[in-house]
Design a binder for these strands. Structure first.
Lengths: 129, 129
DNA sequence: CTTGACCTTCCAGTTACTGGAAGGCCCATG
DNA sequence: CATGGGCCTTCCAGTAACTGGAAGGTCAAG
């Protein structure tokens, strides 16, 4: 099938699929006219990538996971380790963002937000520490 | 003062400070030898930028906030609006990450993570939907 | 005078795409 | 048979916010 159909079926934009071929995550065949020809297996792989990316795995994580997926004899521990590392990254990001949110919320609560110039948000950012 | 001292005082790497000059967030004077010469006001501004960036404001947010900081007559509502928009972005990111975390945690709990090949994490990623 | 710590500019790379230009291919309609 | 629209192709550039490194100038100490 052509890239448009593969895009529809996998839920990934055609541009992204071409990019994934560029970085050698997939290698669809080519028709005589130069068009990419995606097999069901290719589309399945794209779906895998789409789901892994949705879970926030990096491209290099995805490359590793694809390798493990295709290695019928890999240990589930290998997969779990990648997932655990990724989970740690996610949790750390969440913690950072929550910290930001709390600080910002606090600042917002102390700022009256009217047309007067006095503003605790700016004051806090400007304060030498 | 030289860039090294400005870096120490502001907590920003010298590279980042040069970058901020590049994109016209700051405009330190120059000594006869070509070295940047940072005033206390410059360093203060760098501290402001550092704190705003720590709170996750984008560079363009920072540019706007700097403008508001230097405008003694701006309304606090202007600042609060930027902060509120930013807060919404942060909260949306947190929600996305929490979603990822929950899904990943669930998958990790169902994966025994030993040396057998069967792995629910991979299976889930591979499942056609 | 040399050494080492500074400083300068410029170029390239990072992540994961995304937009757009220029041009080829395919099918249906007039 | 021509043409138009919708596919497809490649290639180049841009995004955000730095970061690393090379090549070379400056300065203060010994």
């Amino acid at each position: 099938m052509n890239i448009g159909e593969a895009a529809t079926q996998s839920g990934l934009p055609a541009k992204t699929i071409r990019y994934y071929e560029d970085i050698k995550l997939i290698a669809p065949l080519r028709d005589a006219n130069g068009y990419r020809d995606f097999s069901d297996a290719d589309v399945h792989k794209l779906g895998f990538l789409s789901r892994a990316r949705t879970l926030g795995f990096t491209i290099e994580n995805c490359r590793a996971l694809l390798g493990l997926w295709e290695d019928q004899s890999r240990a589930s521990a290998d997969v779990k380790r990648i997932a655990a590392e990724h989970l740690a990254v996610i949790e750390s990001k969440i913690a950072d963002l929550c910290q930001m949110r709390d600080t910002l919320e606090h600042l917002m609560n102390t700022c009256h937000g009217d047309d007067r110039p006095d503003c605790p948000i700016i004051n806090e950012l400007a304060s030498r520490r």
